[in-house]
């Protein structure tokens, strides 16, 4: 998923405004950011026949990253620690159903979980989009609704939150 990670970061932002939007989005994308570097270095493999992303996207790796993020923000209190850890952890349920391959339990475990909806996700659905696209669109819509509805509570005017939501919705339309 892509736009859904933005939506998750924004939704968490309204729940815990003491963690900035930049760090929250970086944490929501942390496994993907690691994946980019590791793939370029040849440590993780992107060819479908030899797909391997266990260091950045295994269940254990994401749990460890979430724990490290929570520990890094723990000095600011339980709320920020939970938000930081939760932002990383959100990557797990969002990627689990339709990742290119099952998420390994730990790097090089050889076994994993997820990708169970991959076949269904690739099936064509309404308006020329796939089931996977519509699933992500629903997740994006829910996250953006939480952001827009909660924005005023953390001092962000509705118009500004709406502009941010339109940007993320556009990302889903263009790249989802």
């Amino acid at each position: 998923m892509f736009a859904a990670h933005f939506a998750a970061g924004l939704a968490i932002r309204t729940a815990e405004p003491r963690v900035g939007i930049g760090p929250l989005l970086a944490l929501a994308f942390l496994p993907d950011l690691l994946w980019l570097g590791l793939s370029a270095a040849g440590i993780e493999l992107v060819a479908p026949a030899v797909w391997f992303d266990g260091w950045s996207h295994s269940v254990a790796s994401i749990l460890v990253l979430a724990a490290l993020a929570a520990a890094s923000w723990s000095r600011r209190g339980a709320g920020p620690a939970a938000a930081a850890g939760g932002a990383v952890l959100s990557h797990l349920p969002l990627d689990l159903p339709i990742h290119p391959a099952p998420l390994e339990w730990w790097p090089h475990a050889g076994a994993g979980v997820g990708a169970f909806a991959r076949g269904w996700a690739g099936t064509a659905a309404a308006l020329g989009k796939t089931n996977g696209w519509w699933t992500e669109a629903a997740v994006v819509a829910a996250g953006l609704a939480a952001y827009v509805l909660g924005a005023r509570r953390i001092g962000i005017p509705l118009a500004s939150a709406g502009a941010g939501a339109i940007l993320v919705a556009s990302l889903q339309l263009a790249f989802g």
Partner: peptide
């Protein structure tokens, strides 16, 4: 294996929207 061009392009797809979202928030708080 991904090239560094691919990495930069994908990185910008995350960084640029995140920067716009941060700017929107920063502008709203002024």
């Amino acid at each position: 294996m991904m090239t560094w061009h691919d990495v930069v392009a994908q990185l910008l797809l995350v960084v640029l929207p995140a920067a716009i979202l941060a700017l929107i928030e920063a502008g709203a708080r002024r």
